[in-house]
Design a protein around this nucleic acid. Sequence first.
DNA 1: ATGAAATTGAAAATCATTTTCAATTATACT
DNA 2: AGTATAATTGAAAATGATTTTCAATTTCAT
Lengths: 143, 143
Amino acid sequence: MQKEIELFKEHLKKINLKVTSQRLKVLEAFLKTEKHLSCEELFLIVHRNAPEVGYTTVYRTLKLIQKSGLAREVDFGDRVSRLEHEYGHQHHDHMVCLKCGKFFEVYEPEIEALQDKLAKKKNFTPVRHKMEIFGYCRECGKK
Amino acid sequence: MQKEIELFKEHLKKINLKVTSQRLKVLEAFLKTEKHLSCEELFLIVHRNAPEVGYTTVYRTLKLIQKSGLAREVDFGDRVSRLEHEYGHQHHDHMVCLKCGKFFEVYEPEIEALQDKLAKKKNFTPVRHKMEIFGYCRECGKK
DNA sequence: ATGAAATTGAAAATCATTTTCAATTATACT
DNA sequence: AGTATAATTGAAAATGATTTTCAATTTCAT
């Protein structure tokens, strides 16, 4: 976690932003929680220990965490932005259960390779991609 | 287009909803426009010819069009819901240009097959999926 | 035709996100 | 350490898409 905090501080320095206690509190709360967090969820966590940190600051810090490369936005199509850890984590996609809402991280190198191939074929320079498979998890089965 | 209108009317009957001129106007405007439309865009089109149809009705009819199986929601991650034609159209995914915003429909059977295989491996029953590749189109190049 | 039930559109509510702004704080430089 | 300056903060308001409310209107089975 120390490594991530250093990276974040470096990123702030690089773009002439300041290291503040609020920013560090938000970052630490994010790093401690290995989950896909929405801004509101993270705000509630931070607020528990540090009620003086406002929602806006959490929101803004989340953007900075993304830009510093420590987090990536995931989009499950519910119009809520969620962040997942990026640093030290391999790229992956998701399978989302339509019934219980649980999701699973998946990674399939063959699919990744085919995506790149497909882009190349269309003269498209891929930067990132999203893939989500929606359906029913083992427990929920399909009806 | 007649076929689609019939399907829509059948769908309404099946769930005890009424066939109204507003609903038909919205449906026809949607069918005539072979594009990925947001609710607002469709409202503007409908409004041009039929100013008496309100935004709310367009919004609600769009939901019905989706449920009737004539349209599918696409999500380009900008928090705006867009609908594309589903009936008589093959499933496909998208490549979205980060610079000019243009998108292209793509379909790669091998990827589709691998997605199903991946789901099966995880005991997951896939229902639908989304895949979007973001990057730079031929014209915009990278950088 | 009639009446129950659905529909309509304007306006308001919701909800996540984003901006505004005056007061506060971090940092570079004496 | 003190100071100037530029960034930061949090509350509140603005935004923008979506969704609900509700009284008036319309549909359609009978």
